[in-house]
């Protein structure tokens, strides 16, 4: 009797996180359209851009304004938990963030960036939303640490929000528990690249399907 050797089978891929991905698609906050500039400004820039040769003006102005915006992003000191200690270490002497132009500022009304560092709890979420609303446009949000990304190690707790993107729209997610200052700096530099791609009407770059 011939015994056939086993045929190697490539196992079917096990999609473990499809449910979480669907949950994220449904629940995360999306940025409202047209949150950057007024209608008048947009119509003026459209007019200049459609003028023959006008694109030179808009692209140069764009590049200049985006350089100015990205070189002077002021984060509001919004440290919630353990990641706050690493955020403070990033703002301090060794991993200086002030050389990038980021001066940590306590008042949300004078800042551009909110680095949500730490676990967002249900009691804290309305406060976080209020601080985010007090920030003037254009504003960005960086979710630092796994607690802010998705709830982190406390995801299954009854008082923990499963990620800060359920409360505010987030631009950059920095993973880690806590992310060391090098990771946070990487995230902030990625944010600066995103800001540099602000297009002429002030709408943000659409997500690149190859990268995002």
């Amino acid at each position: 009797m011939e015994i056939k050797p086993p045929v190697p089978q490539i196992p079917a891929p096990i999609w473990r996180n499809i449910k979480d991905l669907q949950e994220w698609e449904q629940t995360h906050q999306r940025r409202p359209e047209g949150d950057k500039h007024s209608q008048l400004f947009e119509s003026v820039t459209e007019g200049i851009h459609s003028f023959p040769g006008g694109f030179v003006v808009t692209t140069v102005a764009d590049a200049f304004l985006n350089w100015a915006r990205k070189s002077s992003v002021w984060p509001v000191t919004f440290g919630l938990a353990c990641c706050a200690i690493e955020m403070m270490a990033t703002f301090a002497s060794r991993f200086d963030v002030e050389r990038l132009g980021m001066v940590p500022w306590a008042s949300p009304r004078h800042s551009d960036l909110m680095v949500v560092s730490g676990t967002v709890t249900i009691k804290m979420a309305p406060m976080l939303e209020r601080i985010y609303d007090q920030m003037p446009d254009p504003k960005w949000a960086v979710s630092m640490g796994s607690c802010a990304n998705s709830g982190g190690p406390f995801r299954h707790g009854y008082h923990v929000v499963k990620g800060v993107d359920r409360v505010i729209p987030v631009d950059v997610y920095v993973p880690g528990c806590p992310p060391p200052p090098e990771s946070l700096l990487n995230g902030l530099l990625l944010l600066q690249d995103q800001i540099a791609h602000f297009r002429k009407t002030g709408r943000r770059a659409l997500p690149n399907p190859k990268v995002d």
């Binding site: 629940t27 249900i122 979420a125 709830g151 299954h156 707790g157 009854y158 008082h159 923990v160 929000v161 499963k162 359920r166 409360v167």
Partner: peptide, 17 residues
Amino acid sequence: HPLLKSYAVDTPHPPYR
């Protein structure tokens, strides 16, 4: 009251979780 054994740890609380 969460720490009672009859309370589930991952009780949902819309809209945040």
